[in-house]
């Protein structure tokens, strides 16, 4: 006891990924869907950092840094798109955004 095995960190990461996955697939609210994506990015970060520590290489931390930056950028544009969507459709329910089909 004392030190936590690598697998547990990774499992935590994959658990977060799975939850984000689920949020993305199950929830109808576009914002919550997007939050799921954010969670998945965090899962990736968790994995990076776990391995970074396991292998004692810091490039994993640099990677996490980039992931956070990307997440921020995505959030900016993504939220802007949702604003535009609500302006047009007055809804954030992904089920209702389906005029383009077949």
């Amino acid at each position: 006891m004392g030190s936590v095995p690598l697998a547990h960190y990774l499992a935590l990461g994959s658990a977060l990924f799975a939850v984000g996955f689920a949020a993305l697939l199950v929830r109808r609210n576009a914002l919550v869907v997007f939050m799921g994506v954010e969670l998945m990015l965090n899962a990736a970060n968790m994995t990076f950092l776990a391995f970074s520590r396991a292998h004692q290489t810091m490039s994993g931390q640099a990677a996490a840094f980039f992931v956070i930056a990307v997440a921020a950028a995505e959030a900016a544009v993504g939220l802007a798109i949702m604003i535009a969507l609500v302006r047009n459709r007055n809804t954030l329910n992904v089920d209702e955004v389906d005029t383009l089909k077949y």
């Binding site: 955004v97 389906d98 077949y102």
Partner: peptide, 17 residues
């Protein structure tokens, strides 16, 4: 097959996942 493409983005995501 065309009707699988029903415009619901979440359906697409499920297929992808």
């Amino acid at each position: 097959f065309r009707y699988f493409q029903d415009g619901n983005v979440q359906r697409y995501a499920v297929v992808m996942a």
